[in-house]
């Protein structure tokens, strides 16, 4: 665990150098584990019965819990986008959980969180135009057309604030733990970091995951639901 993001190797594609950083490799690891889980769930799904037992019970509970959360936050007419946010939820949560094992969390890199927040922004625009058509465009011209620049800045600030919130929380935990690991002797590194990991990675990570997804839902509902 380190303060800076290490650059592992550089790939040249068509004369452009692309840096493969620690963040990208950790993202690949987490993606591989999530895809493996999804494939296992898909294979087991062929043997699912009407009355859930064991593994099927766990999967159904998780999906149902998330679907209810999405339907409550978005309203039933918009909750068909819940699968995308289930993926975002699983990725952010597992990336903060894997930092317990010493992987640097990919969400402690602004590139990752801005990508996720920008996807929310694109989805917000798309859903707004899909459900309200011209009414969404009209909402930019506010109570009076003179408010257009303010409304535009307000909309553009949404992905930035959404990404900075997650990034700042994850990075502060990473930095505090890195400083702790560098400053203390090995005797102090036996049981105490576990408590700090439990707070900074598990508690804060789960809370920020929930907040990221919930605020994304709020933005999309504000754009797409007719007032």
């Amino acid at each position: 665990m380190d303060l800076n993001i290490k650059n592992l190797w550089v790939v040249y594609i068509g004369g452009v150098e692309i840096w493969i950083t620690e963040t990208i490799v950790n993202t690949w690891i987490i993606m591989a584990i999530l895809i493996l889980l999804a494939v296992i769930a898909r294979i087991r799904m062929t043997r699912f019965s009407l009355v859930p037992r064991g593994f099927q019970n766990v999967i159904e509970t998780v999906v149902e819990l998330f679907d209810n959360f999405a339907a409550g936050a978005l309203g039933s007419s918009l909750s068909y986008i819940a699968p995308w946010f289930f993926m975002v939820f699983a990725f952010i949560l597992s990336s903060s959980l894997f930092s317990v094992f010493g992987l640097r969390a990919p969400t402690a890199d602004w590139a990752t969180t801005f990508t996720l927040a920008f996807a929310t922004f694109i989805l917000m625009l798309f859903m707004g135009f899909r459900h309200r058509k011209g009414g969404y465009l009209k909402s930019f011209f506010g109570p009076h057309p003179i408010f257009f620049p303010l409304n535009l800045i307000g909309e553009l600030a949404k992905p930035v604030s959404l990404s900075f919130r997650l990034f700042g929380n994850m990075l502060s935990g990473t930095i505090i733990l890195a400083i702790y690991y560098q400053l203390t002797p090995w005797l102090m590194q036996i049981g105490i970091p576990a408590l700090m990991h439990a707070f900074f990675d598990v508690v804060i990570g789960a809370l920020q995951t929930y907040i990221f997804v919930f605020i994304s839902f709020m933005y999309i509902r504000g754009a797409a639901a007719d007032n």
């Binding site: 604030s161 900075f164 919130r165 929380n169 809370l207 920020q208 929930y210 907040i211 919930f214 605020i215 709020m218």
Partner: peptide, 9 residues
């Protein structure tokens, strides 16, 4: 929780 997150920004 949403208000706390907004205030934390």
């Amino acid at each position: 929780f949403v208000g706390l997150a907004m205030g934390e920004t």
